[in-house]
Write a protein that binds this DNA or RNA. Structure first.
Lengths: 195, 195
DNA sequence: ACCTGAACACCGTTCAAGT
DNA sequence: ACCTGAACACCGTTCAAGT
């Protein structure tokens, strides 16, 4: 019988290091998004080479550290309290939650931003998982005729990228609300606007 | 008679260094937006301390290096070929030009991005000059009743921030067009949309 | 297989010493 | 006044040597 997990089996010490690096990284990056990789390795009690073995680039580490948070965000897109809403409202509500998440976890914004970077082959699973969550909500609105059909989930992700340039220490809520209104309004079909 | 220029008079050698650093920086940053300050100082034939004396932070240098390009962009907002257009079209056309500029000069995007950063007191003259250019176009559309009156130029600058996350090496034009349409559509008043 | 940690080339930044 | 450039503390990254 092979392992039920799809992930390749690691040696026990490697797995333990992997987990410890991640938990330390989550803490360190939340405290300071610019925390150095060397400092994280040291705090995790591993050599610098070990960190690089597991996470070849900084983005890999950041993305992995916030995988859980991002997954929660993605899961929310298909949760009852979102899907019960009319499509356009659902999309807007989900973006609100996204803003909340980003603003309260400094390091998370870096992870989300990495997913919005342009060069495609450098975009990882976060990009994929976020766009699929957006696609879910977007397509529902498109099929209902509320949202324009000529825009992709990638477009929408780029359009809401302003969320990670807000200042968490400021009074960002009114501005986020105005701009999300702007984007969601732009997403609506002429028919939906007229209604 | 004092100097006609508002800028404080510098010693001749200081002025020469200042100018040379800027011209070298423009070239270096255009070639590689991540060029190091030390390498720019060396290429300009000055000590590192001299560069820091003139430009206390990297953003100061980047902003100064692209001042001329940004000014051209800003001037375009009040140029005849823009002001002759209907307000909403003018705004959209100006953004197209903005995208062109950003995509053809790699380092310029960094300068523009610095202007979109959240923390207010770190935003410099580029932010000010860009928002005033946007305000010019925006207010014209607002007074004509074509554009929503509840949005500021700062909002709009944030909303078009996706422009500096496009990949200049890719086929960015169709996506930029879709997203600019989205934003400009969102900016229009209900009355204008119905028309 | 995996880990360690010294070593390397580099970075931003400072500051005593010069002119 | 202004400049130089060595020096400092740090960064990301590598890799021989260990287990």
């Amino acid at each position: 019988m092979p392992e039920p997990k799809t992930e390749v089996k690691k040696r026990a010490d490697a797995q333990a290091n992997y987990d410890r690096i991640l938990s330390v990284a989550l803490e360190a990056l939340t405290a300071d998004p610019d925390a150095s990789l060397n400092s994280i390795a040291k705090a995790a009690g591993v050599g610098a080479g070990t960190l690089y073995r597991h996470f070849p680039t900084r983005d890999h580490l950041v993305v992995a550290a916030y995988r859980h948070e991002v997954q929660e965000l993605v899961d929310a897109a298909s949760s009852p309290w979102i899907t019960a809403l009319p499509p356009t409202v659902a999309l807007r509500t989900w973006f609100d939650r996204m803003a909340q998440y980003g603003m309260t976890k400094a390091g998370l914004m870096e992870a989300l931003e990495a997913a919005t970077k342009s060069v495609p082959f450098e975009r990882g699973e976060i990009h994929e998982v976020l766009t699929s969550a957006i696609a879910l909500l977007l397509e529902r609105g498109q099929q209902a005729g509320e949202l324009r059909a000529d825009l992709t989930a990638e477009d929408v992700l780029l359009a809401v990228g302003f969320l990670w340039r807000l200042d968490p220490a400021s009074d960002w809520r009114p501005q986020a609300a105005r701009l999300l209104d702007l984007v969601v309004d732009g997403l609506r079909t002429a028919a939906a606007v007229r209604a």
